[in-house]
């Protein structure tokens, strides 16, 4: 535990302490803390809810909505982005429609979702999908267009066809860029799941939070907010971790990963027949 760790911890504790003081003494200086629950209230409420089945029901409902919508968006976004980047026909057919729809914030589609879909559930998933689709589609399109042309030429002169180029060059090569879109997408998705639940949901963390607000259960609202934050962090981190796993091949500028052993003097310019470098090979796993 260094001084810096201590400072960081202190910062959090101080914030909570300030909250507790402001609310416990019902401070009202322009900002009004009379109605605001104290940290202790929130903690007690949280303890109760975690023990109840309804809390976990809400949690899994929200998670399953975002996972469904996000996975569908990831697949559709990568497919559409790749098609637009690789085919002029796809760009002409899909491009205009998507460009017209893109500036509409997904949450503004709530009325449309209610009109179109037979159940609220599907409507919420639709909104989540739309939210994540555009960032993924746009980043895929850019990443595919920015690929080094030589990679494709090399594979084609090995006899590789369209699908081989797609599977062996385009998708793996665009992956780092696609991941950027996925990261943005999961964040926007989460915002939209919560908002859509608040507007039209049955169950779910967003629905519960709004419900608590309408029945003046303010500690419950705060518990909802904390839960929303935690789940948002969880989903974003999941995407982030997954992303780092699949792009371990990327050259890292800061040489943290390769600090201890691997770098020995490069063996070029030495004997050619069997460049004698039995040396420590990096244990990078095979792609």
């Amino acid at each position: 535990m260094t001084v810096r760790h201590l400072l960081r911890l202190l910062s959090l504790v101080a914030a909570l302490g300030l909250w507790q003081l402001l609310t416990a003494f019902d401070v009202s200086v322009w900002l009004r803390f009379e109605q605001f629950p104290t940290v202790v209230d929130v903690a007690r409420e949280f303890g109760e809810r975690v023990g109840s089945e309804a809390y976990w029901q809400d949690l899994t409902d929200s998670l399953s909505r975002i996972v469904t919508g996000f996975v569908l968006a990831a697949v559709a976004g990568v497919a559409a982005g790749t098609a637009i980047a690789r085919s002029r026909l796809a760009a002409d057919l899909l491009g205009p429609v998507l460009e017209v729809l893109r500036p509409i914030p997904a949450i503004a589609l709530v009325p449309v979702a209610i009109l179109l879909f037979p159940s609220n559930e599907q409507g919420i998933v639709f909104i989540t999908f739309t939210a994540a689709f555009f960032p993924v589609m746009v980043s895929t399109r850019h990443a595919v267009r920015a690929l080094t042309p030589v990679w494709e030429e090399a594979v084609r002169t090995m006899g590789g066809g369209r699908w081989r180029v797609l599977g062996s060059v385009v998708l793996p090569g665009a992956l780092p860029g696609i991941l950027g879109g996925l990261s943005v997408g999961i964040g926007v998705s989460w915002i939209c799941v919560i908002s859509a639940e608040m507007i039209s949901g049955e169950y779910g963390v967003g629905y519960r939070t709004w419900q608590d607000y309408t029945v003046v259960d303010y500690p419950g609202v705060l518990v909802g907010m904390v839960t929303i934050g935690a789940l948002g962090w969880l989903t974003s981190t999941a995407v982030e971790v997954l992303g780092r796993r699949v792009t371990r091949w990327l050259p890292r500028t800061e040489s943290r990963a390769e600090a201890p052993a691997p770098r020995r003097s490069p063996s070029w310019g030495r004997s050619l027949a069997g460049a004698a470098d039995p040396g420590p090979l990096t244990s990078t796993k095979e792609a």
Partner: peptide, 15 residues
């Protein structure tokens, strides 16, 4: 007919 390029033609994510 295989083509060999000046540089950067290896797929960087493959060993």
């Amino acid at each position: 007919r295989a083509l060999i390029f000046q540089d950067d033609a290896l797929l960087p994510w493959r060993t």
